[in-house]
């Protein structure tokens, strides 16, 4: 496959970036998108040019590190996958592909396609944990939990924190991520104890990081590689309302 790539190049957060065009003509349709980027970087290094910086780690859709907006969609055109799981057979020979970093005030560009997502870490640090004593590992059946609750808690826990929700939202809102983390803990007995305090602190931190507000377009859930449900946002809103009316 021969592809024309338009890639965002930016030296650092202080420097102005621009789209730069590259041609790659030795791409196999069996390659993953990141392998295609590796091929391009090999070519650039051989020519003595600066390779393109991009985030990646596990390359199997678990770590949430890959963060590219491909032709206007976070993680590209295929539904329910991360960039590293996207294969070049999703594109056609001769295609032009536009690759940009996730864009949000809360995610400053570090270099090229790499953005600083530590805002998510600070939101988790604000309350996305269980601090009450839960004792040592109990017997599996010691605390009965309804299967539906356990399943929904697990579904919320599949959020890998990649931030595609923020990248896809027209308001750069982080509510799907924050709500998934809140719902995951709120659905389980050990996490429920601190729900009200947690939701207030995490939402306050989310606002402080400069993310936008949710207008319920549903783009976040539609673009999420783990297909996290919008129901988590409604649950978070409900908890937030309760914690505002009755903080304790």
């Amino acid at each position: 496959m021969k592809l024309t790539l338009h890639i965002w190049r930016q030296r650092d957060s202080e420097t102005k970036g621009e789209m730069v065009q590259y041609i790659v003509d030795d791409v196999s349709e069996h390659m993953s998108f990141l392998e295609m980027m590796d091929v391009l970087n090999d070519n650039l290094v051989k020519k003595g040019e600066e390779p393109i910086a991009f985030d990646h780690d596990c390359r199997e859709g678990i770590c949430g590190m890959c963060s590219m907006v491909i032709n206007g969609q976070p993680h590209g055109p295929q539904k329910g996958v991360t960039t590293c799981q996207l294969h070049m057979r999703s594109f056609n020979d001769g295609d032009s592909i536009y690759i940009e970093p996730f864009r949000a005030k809360g995610f400053p560009v570090v270099r090229d396609l790499i953005v600083d997502r530590s805002a998510f870490d600070r939101i988790i640090q604000a309350g996305g944990y269980v601090s009450v004593g839960t004792g040592s590992a109990p017997d599996g059946n010691a605390i009965p939990i309804k299967k539906e609750e356990a399943d929904e808690a697990f579904n919320a826990a599949t959020c890998i924190g990649c931030a595609a929700c923020v990248a896809s939202c027209k308001n750069a809102s982080a509510m799907l991520f924050v709500s998934a983390k809140i719902a995951q803990l709120d659905r389980l007995p050990q996490g429920k104890v601190e729900s009200k305090e947690r939701v207030s602190k995490m939402i306050a931190q989310m606002d402080e990081e400069g993310f936008g507000n949710c207008t319920n377009t549903g783009a976040c859930s539609a673009e999420c590689p783990k297909e996290i449900s919008l129901e988590n946002i409604a649950r978070m809103n409900r908890l937030h309302l309760k914690s505002t009316i009755s903080p304790t």
């Binding site: 032709n71 206007g72 949000a104 005030k105 939202c169």
Partner: peptide, 15 residues
Amino acid sequence: ARPDRYQYANKARAY
């Protein structure tokens, strides 16, 4: 919340 806009139009699947 998004001071730098996308160069390529946002094609996110919205409802």
